[in-house]
């Protein structure tokens, strides 16, 4: 029986709306306004302001990713052990918040973090020093962790729940205590989940322009902000495309790094 024709609509669609558009980015990135070939748009990343933005983006998204792992791993572990209703948990953590607009949710942190906001009121009443993190890189990190944490929890949770409980029992049976069992068996087996969580958090954090815009004030520019401005304000699509290509190179590098690490830990499953 022939099901080949069934892939045609999707094939056409993805060529038209995924592959050709990406080629256009490359076309614009490697040409100037007259359409002549140039590397200037790529090399532009070395300009001080762009380097600064890229460096800051990498730093903030790196820190956010680490925090996400530290928060998400214990959560995933607990949820696997607590035998709660999986589906309702996933809905509660992923789907339901999305029905409250993500811009509004992020903006709400402004209200919470303001000098006289809720969090500081609580801190003052506890005689603790108030936080002044709004419009600083710390607020951006918070926004990133807030928005992308679920994308770290889900893959880790998935890979943990796939582990056969008898494999854990086997480790205990062979004499490992709970800490040894965790580091020698559970953690290595969940590594693929951690890795895919890292890409799912690092990439959107690296490329965001919304979170920095909403929580960082207008002074902090990430690489995403620079690119966005080239398209919506300065209208220099060639430069914007060139910087996007650089960004994609970083994304590809980070994905390659994770796949290599993955291979070391996992062998060739999946």
């Amino acid at each position: 029986m022939n099901r080949k024709w069934m892939s045609t609509p999707y094939l056409v669609w993805s060529i038209a709306f995924i592959i050709i558009p990406l080629c256009m980015v490359f076309y614009y990135g490697f040409t100037d306004k007259t359409g002549a070939f140039t590397l200037a748009n790529i090399i532009a990343i070395t300009m001080e302001e762009h380097m600064k933005a890229l460096w800051l983006s990498m730093l903030l998204s790196f820190i956010s990713t680490i925090i996400c792992i530290l928060l998400a791993y214990p959560l995933a572990l607990i949820l696997c052990n607590l035998s709660v209703n999986q589906n309702s948990f996933l809905v509660l953590i992923f789907i339901l918040p999305m029905w409250m607009n993500f811009l509004l949710r992020t903006l709400a942190w402004q209200t919470l973090l303001e000098k006289t906001g809720v969090i500081n009121s609580i801190l003052t009443s506890l005689h603790l020093p108030p936080l002044t993190i709004i419009n600083t890189p710390y607020a951006i990190i918070l926004g990133m962790v807030y928005n992308f944490l679920p994308f770290m929890v889900l893959p880790i949770y998935n890979s943990l729940s796939k582990i056969d409980p008898n494999v854990v029992n086997a480790a205990r049976d062979l004499g490992a205590n709970s800490i040894q069992t965790f580091f020698k068996v559970i953690f290595p087996l969940s590594l693929p989940g951690v890795i895919s969580g890292i890409t799912m958090v690092f990439v959107p954090a690296l490329t965001t322009f919304v979170i920095s815009n909403l929580l960082g004030g207008s002074k902090i520019l990430l690489i995403g902000n620079v690119i966005e401005q080239e398209f919506t304000q300065t209208n220099n699509w060639n430069l914007g495309s060139g910087l996007s290509i650089v960004l994609m190179i970083f994304i590809i590098i980070s994905i390659i790094i994770s796949t290599i690490t993955d291979k070391d830990g996992e062998g060739s499953s999946l």
Partner: peptide
């Protein structure tokens, strides 16, 4: 006594080998 302190070992259903 937890399993790791017991002087016996188990062969599990579906083997439960460490795939990594």
């Amino acid at each position: 006594l937890p399993p790791n302190k017991r002087q016996l070992n188990t062969v599990f259903q579906k083997y439960a080998l460490f795939t990594h």
